[in-house]
């Protein structure tokens, strides 16, 4: 009886790889425009490193929006807090940071990053319970609450550490570059790329291979149905929110080291860029967020080199172009 049905042809599952090719195409097109291969290489590596750091900061936000439709304008607070926590560890241990030994450097860097993630994640727990729980489903109130939260966090950092920029020197063994012929690759950028790639792979494996990951993907698509299957999605969301906050803290730490400074409004300043990234990528899509972060970083680096005057508007331009091509972002995963 059902043979008829079983023989229905199934359209070949086509993987949508066009967005994946974008960064590649952009890089290739830029090579002749920039001219010198070594400048191109430097800019490309800088883009990849910056893109990975932005991805780490933005990945949590896209899942938070995709899963629960929560607009968190305060995500930048986790970035700043993470950076300050890491600084609090790194500054007193300056001798370890300045030691010319990779092991000693890492022995202080790793705990600093882990503590930054822990504090940001814990702060995420409080923010979700106190600020977001009461305003589920109400976008305007979410924006007000989370923006307020960001202002409070920023002012608290000002009050505790003052308005000045705090210098945060890179550990000695991460300074300088690896030289290949006339190409120089900054060591810290390489590290940032590796960490970013590791985070991306860890998230992808979790989303694709674990039941929790399946629940997150299913919840992004249709959270009512996930609840109707008997899963308490609020708990899942709290977990995602905390992990996202912790990742923002890690990203903030890495960003601060990249810039070799921290200041109280750094998270706030990164917020617009992060929103652009997750909108370009398609809200709720980790793959889209990854590509979006790369594109934003490439446009910033290549654009800054070729037409410095465009630097201020290049992100917005990129977003407009992408949204004209795909109005819901590179990968549209939610049905909202």
């Amino acid at each position: 009886m059902t043979e008829l049905v079983a023989l229905d042809p199934l359209p070949k599952p086509k993987r949508d790889i066009l967005p994946l090719l974008l960064p590649l195409i952009l890089a290739v097109v830029m090579l002749p425009l920039i001219g010198s291969p070594s400048s191109w290489m430097t800019l490309t590596v800088a883009s990849l490193a910056m893109g990975m750091m932005i991805f780490i900061m933005a990945s949590g936000l896209t899942l938070v929006f995709g899963l629960m439709d929560v607009l968190n304008f305060g995500h930048g607070a986790f970035i700043s807090v993470g950076a300050y926590v890491a600084t609090l560890v790194l500054l007193p241990l300056a001798t370890w940071v300045q030691a010319d030994s990779l092991l000693t450097n890492l022995a202080v860097l790793a705990p600093a990053a882990i503590l930054a993630m822990g504090v940001s994640g814990a702060l995420g727990l409080i923010v979700e319970r106190v600020l977001i729980l009461p305003v589920y489903g109400q976008h305007l109130k979410q924006i007000l609450m989370t923006t307020g939260g960001l202002i409070v966090a920023e002012q608290a950092l000002y009050a505790l550490w003052g308005p000045q920029i705090i210098p945060l020197p890179l550990p000695t063994s991460l300074r300088g570059s690896f030289i290949f012929g006339d190409i120089a690759i900054a060591k810290y950028r390489l590290l940032a790329m590796l960490v970013g790639l590791a985070v991306f792979l860890a998230i992808q494996i979790t989303l694709n291979r674990s039941k929790i990951g399946l629940l997150i993907r299913a919840g992004v698509e249709n959270r009512e149905m996930v609840e109707a299957l008997g899963y308490r999605i609020r708990r899942l969301f709290l977990g995602v929110f905390m992990v996202g906050s912790a990742l923002a803290g890690l990203g903030g730490t890495m960003w601060a080291l990249y810039r070799e400074q921290v200041h109280a409004s750094m998270g706030n300043e990164l917020t617009v860029m992060i929103f652009i990234v997750i909108i370009i990528g398609g809200l709720g899509s980790i793959g889209g967020c990854f590509i979006g972060a790369l594109l934003v970083a490439m446009v910033a680096n290549y654009g800054g080199f070729l037409v410095p005057k465009l630097a201020l508007v290049s992100n917005i331009l990129l977003m407009v172009v992408i949204l004209m091509w795909r109005p819901r972002g590179l990968y549209a995963v939610t049905n909202r």
Binding site: R217, A218, E221, N222, M225
Partner: peptide, 11 residues
């Protein structure tokens, strides 16, 4: 089984 079926299409 909802009216919209609500299968998770990405899974």
């Amino acid at each position: 089984v909802p009216e919209s079926m609500a299968v998770f299409s990405d899974l």
